[in-house]
Nucleic acid binder design. Structure first.
Lengths: 338, 338
DNA sequence: CTGTTAGCGCATTCAG
DNA sequence: CTGAATGCGCTAACAG
């Protein structure tokens, strides 16, 4: 391995001078800089980040903790995060928690060990709170993305306008004449699920529609079979059967549609569907799902930007909260007047 | 920061003993081990990986260099790689090259600096060869995945059976009665594109079908507009117009179908389409595309396994080549007899 | 503008 | 089974 000592010897300068050249510090004469740079190239020198981090306590890796890269929403988040990280000279460490607190906890331990400069975290659920807050005492900058934790007063966050967008989605259904609207939600221990549910409930109230406990369903945000829930919905007497379903994330919406299809229920003719987020449609030319689509790329990109600002200590002391508006698309899945 | 010295002092042992406990080395009495472990927990000690890597030259991070996580194939590859890495206690650094040699080169430099234990690389193209081979002298284990480089005699690789699967795809078309088969391919500087093209050509030859240069199209493997190529194809006099198209990756197939739709050409009625890889269909219940589907997860998972074996020096000296068979699915997009 | 000294936190080596 | 000494490659702090 080529070290700054090798460079220094060959350039007839001190290792410190080499270090200064590498770190582009001022106060180096052009002549020595050029000389040293030439030798760095010649010897194909690569700085040793471990040594750098050890002594300076400043690392160039950032940890991204999400639930699953395989979820198209988080795929794009990861891409946005990586793009911004690279721009600023940071490397991205990818962690999938699968909404599992133990995995998450393990990753957070690793993040501390690695000496990550900071982390972008989409918390698994409310149980994540304590572990994440424990990062404060390590002085590791954190930005929460997509999901937040309860009573967060210390971390920056980039979140969605869950309540507003949910309201718009529900109001769209109401305009279409729907009154019996079910919600198939993720775990209420996840902030986004809670906020979307609140948006749903407050909008019903606002429009004088009674809330029915039986229309509230809780599953999880992963891609799985929710035909049991759908069966329950279809077992209601026809006059009580929901005419519309608010599926609160992409996977829930798709699973719902799939389960309905299997039961020969037509969307939107028999039941309308609205969703929060969808999946990229490479195939269809006409989008089908009515959806509040989050700007996934920016969750990663802007989140990373806030994080880097904090790492490089150019951010205000107060934690910042960026609310990214979703874009609403009303397509076929809810395109029928009752 | 809590260090082994803090632990040592509190436990009344030497730092070295603490180090031994942490590294689970033998030759520690149960009593001292337990005592030390208790204090490690109490003080919430996290080993400093930079220091560890610096002194031992063994790091616990692995770099994954792919073209784009946003490509569903690589999304799954990344997930497989991450899963295996975590199992073995490694962290994954994610890099997207966008098929760009400069980005790739930058990432390889970073990988050296970071002191990555190894890397899983899907090379951008043939121009990647020299840079990747330069890693040999740093003694950093490398496993090539999906794509390979020319004259590779040193690196492990996990690749697809591109020729065989291409042959099966083409033979399927031939059985359906097709003789005029076009290929829309990625850059021939990418090994997979070359191999798929070779499979295509040799199969035509095998079946006594003449090769036409005009049926060979080259675009790239990213998701973009290839309507120009499709227009060219449609401008052939009708008796020369291909009745089938082999689109050599997921994005090319989808773009082709989209472009054909726009021109009101029906698939498979007017033109049949076969593809290498597709995208996950969360929505459709009936798969549409006829495809050789690669076991993406295993490209990551097995690739990571080989890499870790090499890092931990339990692999045979000779480079290994794992060829993962694709699964063939013949669906609607080619389901018509001529 | 450049050099010297010291030490980051840990594991390797050698002693005992 | 345990400990002491040493140095990994680099930069902060100070000196000149």
């Amino acid at each position: 391995m080529v070290t700054i000592y090798d460079i220094a010897k060959k350039a007839n300068v001190s290792p410190m001078t080499v270090s200064r050249v590498i770190n582009k510090s001022a106060n180096i004469s052009d002549k020595t800089r050029e000389k040293v740079e030439a030798i760095i190239k010649e010897l194909n020198y690569h700085p040793n980040n471990s040594a750098r981090t050890l002594v300076s306590k400043k690392s160039k890796t950032i940890t991204l903790i999400i639930t699953d890269v395989t979820n198209p929403f988080f795929t794009i988040v990861a891409r946005g995060a990586e793009d911004k990280a690279l721009q600023a000279g940071y490397q991205l460490i990818l962690c999938n928690t699968d909404e599992n607190n133990e995995k998450e906890s393990k990753y957070i331990d690793m993040l501390i060990s690695t000496g990550s400069a900071g982390a972008l975290i989409a918390p698994a659920n409310d149980n994540s709170t304590r572990k994440i807050k424990s990062l404060i005492k390590y002085d590791i900058p954190i930005v929460l993305i997509d999901r937040t934790i309860k009573n967060n007063t210390v971390f920056d966050q980039v979140v969605s306008d869950n309540d507003t967008s949910s309201r718009k989605l529900i109001e769209h259904l109401i305009e279409k004449g729907h009154r019996k609207i079910a919600i198939i939600n993720g775990p209420l221990t996840i902030s986004t699920a809670r906020e979307r549910q609140e948006g749903y409930l407050s909008t019903l109230k606002l429009h004088g529609i009674e809330k029915h406990e039986k229309y509230l369903f809780e599953s999880n945000f992963q891609y799985n079979d929710i035909s049991k829930i759908v069966s329950k919905i279809l077992k209601f007497p026809i006059e009580e059967r929901p005419t519309a379903i608010f599926a609160t994330n992409n996977f829930l919406a798709l699973s719902t549609i799939k389960a309905l299809k299997k039961k020969n229920i037509k969307v939107p003719d028999d039941i309308a569907i609205i969703s929060y987020d969808d999946v990229p449609s490479y195939t269809e030319d006409e989008p089908f799902l009515s959806v509040a689509r989050q700007p996934a790329y920016n969750f990663g990109y802007i989140g990373m930007q806030l994080l880097i600002e904090r790492i490089e200590e150019v951010a205000p002391k107060e934690p910042r909260k960026i609310v990214l508006p979703s874009e609403l698309y009303f397509n076929s899945s809810s395109d029928k007047n009752l």
